[in-house]
Amino acid sequence: MNRFRAFINGADIRRFRFWVQLGFFFLLVYGGYFMINLGQSLPTFSCGFNQPGRAGVCYLLPLQHQTHIPWDSIISGRGLGILTGLLTFLAWLFVFNKAWCGYACPLGTIQDWMTSLRQKLGIRYATYNLDWFTRLKKIKYILLILLIVIPFLMANSVAGLPKLPDDMGTPFCKICPARMVIPAMTGDFSQWTVDFSTGTAAAMTGLGMLVLGIFFVGGFINKRFFCFFCPMSALHSLFSKVALLKLRKDGSKCTRCGDCYRACDMQIREIADDVESTTLVKDDCMMCFKCVAACPEEGALKASFMNIPIYESTEAGFFKRMTKRGKK
């Protein structure tokens, strides 16, 4: 058992992650061709516009349909639909927590591939300075609120104001890069257009194309560029405290050397500097556990599932990874 533990803790998390991500990428992007259907409430960007390849649908799409609901029908079958959708979403999240972002999300995986490409070319990454970082982070919550409120305002008139135009459709999907990127993976580029049928549609799809451009440039120079603004990540973080998979820290063992902070693609400073908290899944965390692999202190950081440690930082593991990667 101890030898098994040592083997796991000495593992190269990058390689493990690469293969898991690749597996999920195929499952979520092409699974539909094999009749796989994981339902409508996946807590990850398994894009609904990717038909017939999708193996399930990103929860944000049905959520925007469901909140397009008049006041008086909330207490009815449709209201119940919102509830079951949310509960299914939470059930998925409850088990794997934000590892959906770090291991499953196809859009995240594509960004990681762009990062590998940049790295291979020897081009330096960009980072945000801390002030900007704390400001920009809030965008994802604003997007989350908007994607719930706008469909609702399309169906209801609040305080005597006119309803929003119906052609805003599923507003977040219109500007989400996944709508264009994920179907393109199955050869479907039909989303890469600006819809001029109405003014609103043109504005929204035009904005979408702009975001797509920013996604490619930003994702190339910045690690996990889009994830800082992702409303799915915001939705996760509202519930991530109760999930079974956790990232734990023992502050007394931490020397604040910052090795984990350096490894973190999401620039989460607390992972190194916070020595008080015992669980450290910040709202941007994608639970990739690169920090655990980067930590040289015995048991200072660990990934645990139902309080059972599954991957732990060890000195031996640290040096094993360092010598291996430094040899290339």
Binding site: Q119, G122, R124, Y125, T255, C257, D259, C260, R262, A263, K290, A294, P296, F318, F319, M322, R325, G326, K328
Partner: peptide, 12 residues
């Protein structure tokens, strides 16, 4: 205290 390198390029 040991150093951790994320990207084995000069800049990092």
């Amino acid at each position: 205290d040991v150093v951790n390198v994320d990207e084995w390029q000069l800049y990092d």
